[in-house]
């Protein structure tokens, strides 16, 4: 009798597992495309007007992917990378930072969060995120006002905006420490692409 119970559960588990595995494989390309499209849209929002494809010219520096924005002449007008605030109210918050080449904030978007609706999720408000434009590593104390910083918190939420503010501060410090390395990597990639483009034209 008990053998029948075990066999039944094993079969149910195997069939259900197989169904999930097949479906996961089938949807993987579509999920990848959806993520790429979402990233593309977010990059367009955080970078200054550009003429290139930041996703295709991305470079990998010290554990982060850097997406460069270039004008029609190939000059660097901005760059973007992902920063994570691990200490949100309900888990990690993923941010996409857009910087001008001098290391100041151009724009910030929230990619992923699980913060409380109506309270913590106000970090996605365009007017609040807009307040970061032009701020740099040294002219801002990257903490909310309530905790002695320069960033506004909002009614009912301190932990979430504080996590975001500190994450941006850390990301700017990281950028300052690696600016030279990033510039070299981007230049190398830019020369390579230019060469390929000329080669293709001939």
């Amino acid at each position: 009798m008990s053998a029948r119970l075990v066999v039944t559960l094993a079969i149910v588990g195997a069939v259900a597992g197989a169904l999930v595995a097949v479906f996961a494989r089938a949807t993987a390309p579509a999920i990848e495309r959806a993520r790429e499209a979402a990233l593309h849209k977010a990059l367009a929002e955080v970078l200054p007007a550009h003429a290139n494809a930041p996703q295709r010219e991305a470079v990998w520096v010290a554990g982060r992917t850097i997406y460069p924005a270039r004008d029609a002449g190939g000059r660097l007008v901005g760059l973007a990378f992902v920063a994570t605030a691990p200490d949100g109210y309900s888990g990690a918050i993923q941010l996409l930072l857009g910087l001008s080449p001098d290391g100041r904030i151009w724009a910030v978007r929230v990619l992923e969060h699980r913060e409380t609706p109506g309270l913590g999720d106000q970090i996605t408000r365009a007017d609040w995120l807009g307040g970061f434009r032009g701020r740099g590593l040294h002219d801002t104390r990257w903490e909310v006002k309530k905790r002695g910083g320069d960033i506004d918190e909002f009614t009912g939420a301190t932990i979430t905006p504080s996590a975001v503010a500190r994450a941006i501060g850390r990301a700017l410090a990281w950028y300052a420490a690696h600016a030279e390395e990033i510039r070299r990597a981007l230049d190398a990639k830019g020369r390579m692409r230019k060469k390929q483009a000329q080669g293709g034209a001939r």
Partner: peptide
């Protein structure tokens, strides 16, 4: 549930 979760991730990403 997993199938629906994957399907939404692919086709209703937002």
């Amino acid at each position: 549930v997993t199938v629906v979760d994957l399907a939404m991730d692919a086709w209703a990403h937002e």
